[in-house]
Design a protein around this nucleic acid. Structure first.
Lengths: 108, 108
DNA sequence: TATCTAATTAGAATTTTCTCTAAATACAAT
DNA sequence: ATTGTATTTAGAGAAAATTCTAATTAGATA
């Protein structure tokens, strides 16, 4: 959904590797899982995180589930990183609310 | 050091917000901490993660510690993301070792 | 219907991450 | 030397993430 989910999803090496696999095109859950030394249940957990982060999309066919990269999210990420390394004072809003409510009135 | 530390560091909203603050230039640990509703010890923990990920550098002056953005890591990240959304079959090596040792000899 | 295959969900165990309090370090100023 | 300020380190508790086994869902096939 937001950046939080996306960054969280990308923080796990298994999930990043799944994304790299999907660069070559869509794959079934089972075929992806064959590349890892983990149970299907665990793989399913990771697919869910990636779906939640909009990094992959899922389509069902027969009794298979296929996953595919959603590259549009990468576009947004690239923009964020370019903003981070770019000129100062460019407006930026991450949607995070980790700043206190200016309790001392100093206005920051 | 590697991508793993970098992505892990970026997965926390407090740490991303610290980076955004540092876009305006270097700041002391205390000044950064003033933007958050957390103890100095906790802030120090986050600084350590960011240093570990090479996302910030530290310089000591008098009894202050100043932190500064290291934008070169963002360059690498942008490259990674552009590779992810780009043409297939481009060589990619993330340094992760999450793939099993091809125990069945199928070779993938 | 019964059974097989593909994949997910549920629940528990383990590990990791985040945050705090208390104590320690380092430098500055009295 | 003592006190004060800025920051980190140590250790512990709470919360979140990762992984497993067992059970479940859903469709395909005999």
């Amino acid at each position: 959904m937001g950046f939080q989910e996306t960054f969280k999803a990308l923080s796990d090496p298994v999930r990043r590797e799944i994304l790299v696999l999907l660069r070559d095109g869509r794959m079934s859950a089972g075929d992806i899982g064959a590349h890892f030394d983990m149970t299907g249940a665990t793989m399913s957990y990771h697919f869910k995180q990636l779906k939640n982060a909009d990094l992959i999309t899922e389509t069902k066919e027969k009794n298979f589930v296929y996953y595919e990269l959603n590259t549009s999210v990468f576009d947004e990420l690239v923009m964020w990183f370019e903003m981070m390394r770019g000129k100062k004072n460019e407006k930026i809003d991450m949607g995070d609310s980790t700043v206190p409510a200016d309790g001392d009135g100093s206005g920051g």
